[in-house]
Write a protein that binds this DNA or RNA. Structure first.
Lengths: 354, 354
DNA sequence: CCCCTTCTTGAAACCGCTTTCAACCATCGG
DNA sequence: CCGATGGTTGAAAGCGGTTTCAAGAAGGGG
């Protein structure tokens, strides 16, 4: 199609004796090996026995031609696919990126290729486009990151058409899924703050996946369990600067002495906002995050938070999908509970407010 | 293949009057529209004129059947593909994730699907596996993140076999690429430190892309230009804790008053290490990072750094690839220079060492 | 020694689409 | 009124594999 302009290194790994000018096909292999095409196919797929001797000739031919079966042709002929799709609203945000890494890794290990389709919003045309992209590619199955409205919408639109497993923060019936149960840890974190002596804890909520995410639920539960006042929720966007602003705002309110942030980035932004307002964390205000972001322990003050292993979640999701594809019974719904990690951003409330 | 277990929402977007139990094919559409298969193909691809009336019938049939052309069949028949591959060593690290997001976004806008193949190391079998994955998928082209040894190896192995553009931090001849020229900014950052009065600037190097990356080169150049001593380089892994350790080590050396870190995460880890060793940034040691990570401005102290727009780099790369695929002359090698951003982590050296 | 199994093998059909290519139709100029 | 011209259309041939099926070879039992 287009000539490479570097004649130097011809990538010997690519087509060793490079005798053809086009990529080798199964017919080329068959010819060179002196066998029929179906025989080559059989050694490729291992679907049926092939005599030792022929198999060997075929293997040699494959190696010598640098032959690589065309995935497209295989899909078409066999009606089954060795690629899965990951659908997510975002690929670069920490938790998402880690989850994607987890499913990619394990999918690759299982011999699957992965295509990534992002659906940025829950707008109908966007969701439709994503569904289209997935379905046109004839994937074996899809893993959906169901942490936000776009994910939820994509799941809804896709689950009837193709094997799907969802990665999520709250268990939900009806869909195979891997879940990182956030509500327990959120509650525990909130209680930690309460036990420190804070009258209540405020909550900064990250964009939720539906009605309510596990983090918010856990926080509310803990407060109710301890019969504490449930302050109004502060909503934050994915952009850290909004967390910063909330920090400056909250710093002015003498009532707030403890805040539970939906994730660590938010916590860091908020702490900075508090700091720039002349208050200190944890002296004047205690802050907890969520996720245990790689920088959470480096931040000054280091964040008290709950560790989420998103990559592991992704691996679980893939395993779930593989099982589903094999027709096995869905794996036990392993919900992993994030362990708490206590660091420097929390302390008893100050004796001298203001 | 496997029954969905939720009979409730049947995803009306997926196959509206769902009359077939299998996905509709082009033949189904042709039959329903009362035209031949090639005619449907023509309205699909727009390759040839079709009478107004037939086109309309076909469109209606497509809509009513919820027909989606099979990408695999299209690839096979047309010998051209509408998917590109991104190959990267890692998908979740900040810069990589952003770059991937950039190429995904623009590829999607251009109508391309994207598969992601990661090559974790430069080990021969790994590189080979990646090459295999790419080539088997019959992609139109690939974008390689050439920021580390695995990327370099993959590039080398792939460039002779398929249209490739590299995303990189240092210009290199012979390969179409989009580059974020890091050396200028690195030099400027180093000079900023020198101008502040520091005797020299130490350097913590992130895993390099080959012999030397632009950041290191720029740093060295600036030092030489100012006839300053070039201290031995500290190497750091991607794991932030190694940066932390280097920080504790450097803090003990009274000679080091300024350090240039290969990226912001490293800078933050290092600052924390310095902090835990009883020294303060920038009072005792000045630190600069690179990238302008979203948290760089929230960190305390906020980082002086150089802003890198990796997503934009990704977009440039895709544009480059598209041009290449159209047979257009490669776009002018737009090298973007990262703008410097001065914040709190740098200051004149302390008058009272120790 | 013969017939029936069991394996291994290749011919042919097919997967869902694109791409010649030739046939057809209508229009148009002479 | 006729042949030339140009635009639409469908039949048929692939694209690169897999799968069905029947044929041939080899092995086994009576």
């Amino acid at each position: 199609m287009s000539q490479r302009q570097t004649p130097s290194y011809d990538g010997s790994m690519t087509h060793p004796p490079a005798t053809l000018d086009r990529p080798a096909t199964i017919a080329d292999v068959a010819r060179l090996a002196g066998v029929s095409v179906p025989t080559v196919s059989r050694v490729l797929t291992g679907a049926a026995r092939v005599s030792e001797e022929r198999r060997h000739r075929v293997d040699k031919a494959i190696a010598s031609l640098g032959y690589r079966p065309s995935a497209a042709a295989q899909v078409l002929a066999s009606r089954r696919s060795m690629t899965i799709a990951i659908v997510a609203a975002n690929t670069s945000r920490y938790g998402y990126a880690e989850a994607i890494r987890g499913v990619e890794e394990s999918a690759r290990a299982a011999g699957y290729a992965v295509i990534i389709v992002v659906v940025e919003s829950e707008r109908n045309d966007e969701v439709r486009a994503a569904v289209d992209a997935v379905l046109r590619q004839s994937v074996a199955g899809v893993v959906i990151l169901k942490f936000d409205p776009p994910g939820v919408a994509a799941l809804k639109a896709l689950q009837s058409a193709v094997p799907v497993v969802a990665l999520s923060g709250v268990p939900e019936a009806g869909v195979p899924q891997a879940v990182l149960d956030e509500s327990e840890a959120a509650a525990a974190l909130t209680e930690h703050l309460l036990n420190l002596g804070h009258a209540t804890v405020h909550h900064v909520r990250i964009p939720p996946s539906g009605k309510e995410d596990g983090r918010t639920t856990g926080w509310r539960l803990a407060l109710q369990r301890h019969r504490k006042w449930v302050p109004p929720i502060e909503d934050v966007s994915w952009d850290v600067t909004t967390a910063y602003e909330i920090g400056t705002r909250l710093a002015k309110d003498p009532e707030v002495t403890a805040v539970f942030c939906g994730n660590d980035e938010t916590a860091m932004g908020l702490i900075r906002g508090v700091f720039d307002s002349g208050k200190k964390v944890p002296r004047d205000i205690s802050v907890v995050g969520f996720d245990d972001h790689p920088l959470a322990s480096m931040f000054i003050p280091a964040l008290t938070t709950a560790r989420q292993d998103f990559a592991e979640l992704g691996r679980h999701g893939t395993a779930q999908l593989m099982a589903l594809l094999e027709g096995e019974s869905p794996l036990a719904l392993e919900t992993v509970e994030p362990p708490l990690v206590f660091r420097e951003s929390t302390a008893p409330p100050s004796k001298h407010p203001r």
